[in-house]
Amino acid sequence: MGRNQKGQGRRMKRRENLMGYLFASPWLMGFFIFTLYPMCSSLYYSFTNYNTLKAPKWIGLRNYQIMFTSDPLFWKSIWNTVYYAVLSVPLGIAMGVLIALLLNRKVRGMRFFRTIFYLPTVVSSVAVSLLWMWILEPNFGLLNTFLGRIGIIGPGWLTDPAWSKNSLILMSLWSVGGGMLIYLAALQDVPESLYEAATIDGAGAFKKFFKITLPMITPTLFYNLITGVIGGLQVFSQAFIMTNGGPSYSTYFYGYHLYNKAFSEYQMGYASALAWVLLVMTLLLSLIIFKTSDKWVYYEGK
């Protein structure tokens, strides 16, 4: 009797397991076919010379060797990407928090403003890029026309190597709405009692912000920093649509170099190696941020 029950239990468990896998199978299949297989393939290709027409030829570490020793565009693209990420990520976070603070006030029509600020996030990057090309156009663009009205001769923006990266950073602030929404949710989670206690203790608005608000939203800042760094290192479409990596390679980002090698020069092996180096760089940076998070991220439950 006992043995029968045990057997029945095992069968039921097996059937449950099977059902579980069956329900998860669409995702599992997607993961194996569209994520794991391409990842493994690209790792293999990164050790080969592969132009998509002929079979890949094993060349060991030559792709990586060329990348680090004799590809000046590799280093140039890293510098451009790091410059972009180092400036755009903190600026994006600061701007997102600032707008969230403004939108956290209890005034009339706030829902309308929240929608307006979030709206640019849902516009496709291609449309945003085209729009900003008009705004930043040096002769008749909106920005230079406005600057001209107040007596300032605007720079060449995207056509000037000294301004092109900064122009793209400025443009990236257009889509801080995504982060803003998360900060807004975090701000609304900060207990009112903390502010009341601080008011009784005589704390001013700045003190409240730096001693209460900011520490309380650090988990959100941490999340946005990680996703921002990952996104920043993958910057591509703006440069591809707006500047073609120019002028003088000033907006030639890592993603653009990877794209050029893969789809312009058909050096898939080399492009795969570039992709893996980007993955390692992203992992290392994420790891550093995670390691330092103990020092600055505050979790309420801890």
């Binding site: 090309m133 008009w134 156009e137 040096p138 002769n139 008749f140 060449g156 995207l158 056509t159």
Partner: peptide, 12 residues
């Protein structure tokens, strides 16, 4: 810069 901006105007 004038040449580049004319070219930019054309491509924009």
């Amino acid at each position: 810069k004038q040449v580049q901006s004319l070219q930019a105007a054309s491509s924009t």
